[in-house]
Write a protein that binds this DNA or RNA. Structure first.
Length: 234
DNA sequence: GACCAGGCACATC
DNA sequence: GATGTGCATGGT
């Protein structure tokens, strides 16, 4: 299924080596990404819902609205009128769906066993916590994993549209692999480190935004040293 | 005006 | 299991 690449005379017949080489190239180009932008764990969790299929700038506007109105705490948001919440998060798009998703998440977050405590949430083992998050309507695998990794520091690799697009263009995975298959590919071939998973995904997003949109702008792509991969760098 | 953005749920076959 | 569709704002 997978083909591995050559870079100059170096043959990357080992996915572990190649994944690290890719990270190295991205890190040298973009620098450490310091993800996730957000002042608190709760803000990161909210941002994970708001950013679904949405430009981050628009998420920032929505978060700013909530902060300006001083309704940014979990309990304030829980009691906030649904229509009012919709109005405030409007800039992030899909505002009616997202307002409901935020309410659903808050109900989970404020109820036992978490009862609004980040510390209690962190103490729940990753696998059952992930299942709990996925039971919430509006939280799918990427949102759940973003919460686990970026808000709670759990060691899970986040897959998104850029990851699928970039690594299938690299010829490393098929375009249609399931979320879990892609996640396993990274988790089984990278050193088991939450910090690495954190920055690797952030690097992928940066690469995606700048070079690997649906119409790729590959001229100065930092992965160019891997040009003997199946990437089309034209 | 078209295309895109750090997805997800649901319907239908 | 795979494929299609609605959701919606703001930037390029």
């Amino acid at each position: 299924m997978r083909k591995f690449c050559e870079s100059g005379k170096k043959r990357w017949d080992n996915p572990r080596e190649l994944l690290l080489r890719i990270y190295q190239l991205l890190y040298s180009h973009f620098g450490f990404r310091h993800w996730w932008p957000g002042e608190s764990e709760f803000e990161i969790m909210l941002g994970a819902i708001l950013t679904q299929n949405t430009n981050w700038k628009n998420v920032e506007r929505a978060i700013k609205n909530l902060k300006d109105k001083k309704v940014f705490s979990p309990k304030q948001l829980m009691t906030l009128d649904l229509n009012k919440l919709e109005e405030l998060i409007k800039p992030s798009g899909y505002y009616r769906q997202k307002a409901r998703r935020i309410k659903e998440f808050l109900e989970f977050f404020l109820s036992p066993p978490i009862s609004g405590s980040i510390e209690k949430m962190k103490k729940i083992p990753t696998a059952p916590l992930r299942r709990m998050l996925l039971e919430i309507k509006g939280i799918g695998p990427e949102t759940a994993d973003s919460i686990l990794l970026y808000a709670l520091g759990k060691r899970v690799f986040v897959i998104d549209a850029y990851t699928r697009r970039i690594f299938s263009r690299l010829g490393l995975v098929s375009e249609k692999e399931s979320y879990e298959q892609l996640q396993n590919f990274f988790e089984q071939n990278l050193p088991k480190s939450a910090k690495l998973y954190n920055d690797y995904h952030a690097q992928i997003v940066e690469l995606g935004k700048n070079y690997c949109a649906k119409k790729p702008a590959c001229q100065n792509c930092p992965l160019k040293p891997l040009k003997r991969c199946q990437i089309n760098f034209d």
